[in-house]
């Protein structure tokens, strides 16, 4: 089974998120970078599938040269090959991103492409679906359970208390959500291998899209510091009074 996993380098935002003064980007002076939990799970899922069924995992990112860090992280977890589609730092839209990934898929005999359900930063919810349409492959999204057999996959998710099961022939595109597995920690040999691994590079052309970002901003918050009802178990009578006032004690 040949599997491609697509991951995106995004700022690791902690207690607070701030925007640069020009309103164009997240302020990353104080933060590192990582990939979204959904994509960590996609990498883990691909590695587990090839451990059971054989084959190999390729990890791909479209981003600046610095995104090699995220490729090496995935190599350390068990991916065998890494592809950087290098950008000049400009933000790519989902249509152009899907087209660039499709070109890589066409050039290699992949059986399965795994992506996150949505990227942590832009949250466009569409690169996987657009990729599938480009390739003419079937796609299932938001998957929390995947079983692979010779000719196909069964992908499951829950929606409004109902379990949905999708049977797809291979090759296919699947987007996954955190919770599909518990990603492992990288092993020391894995890290060493990742450090030495070659990164394949190409630089696709950026293209404008019909949806154009103007500015980013932090939403105005209506909340302020909480009213402290008290300390420890002594606060319980006051807490009960507030619960009653809020109408949650029937």
């Amino acid at each position: 089974m040949e599997i491609l996993v697509c991951v995106k380098r995004v700022p690791t935002v902690g207690g607070k998120i701030a925007v640069t003064p020009d309103g164009q980007e997240v302020d990353t002076r104080m933060s590192g970078f990582s990939i979204s939990p959904h994509e960590e799970c996609a990498v883990e899922e691909a590695v587990q599938i090839t451990e059971r069924a054989g084959g190999s995992v390729t990890v791909l990112t479209l981003g600046p040269e610095a995104a090699i860090e995220q490729l090496r992280d995935a190599l350390a977890l068990g991916a065998g090959r890494a592809v950087l589609l290098e950008t000049d730092g400009r933000e790519w839209g989902p249509i152009a991103t899907a087209a660039a990934i499709a070109a890589e898929v066409r050039a290699h005999p992949y059986d399965l492409v795994l992506l996150g359900n949505e990227a942590a930063d832009t949250g466009d919810y569409q690169v996987g679906i657009r990729l599938a349409h480009e390739l003419g492959w079937p796609v299932a999204t938001g998957i929390k359970n995947l079983s692979v057999s010779a000719g196909g996959v069964v992908a499951r998710r829950e929606y409004r208390g109902v379990e949905e099961a999708y049977s797809l022939p291979l090759p296919a595109v699947i987007t996954v959500k955190e919770g599909i597995n518990l990603p492992r920690y990288p092993s020391l040999p894995g890290r060493l291998r990742a450090k030495r691994a070659a990164i394949e590079r190409s630089a696709p052309d950026w293209a404008a899209e019909g949806l154009r970002k103007e500015t980013l901003r932090v939403p105005a918050s209506s909340k302020h510091q909480a009213t402290v009802l008290g300390h420890g178990a002594d606060a319980v009578p006051e807490l009960v009074r507030v619960l009653d006032e809020l109408g949650v004690l029937s």
């Binding site: 949250g123 949806l211 500015t215 939403p219």
Partner: peptide, 16 residues
């Protein structure tokens, strides 16, 4: 629209 699951807002223009 929401970015970062609503932690940021994006002002954008759509031509379509």
């Amino acid at each position: 629209r929401h970015r970062w699951a609503g932690l940021l807002l994006e002002d954008a223009v759509m031509e379509a």
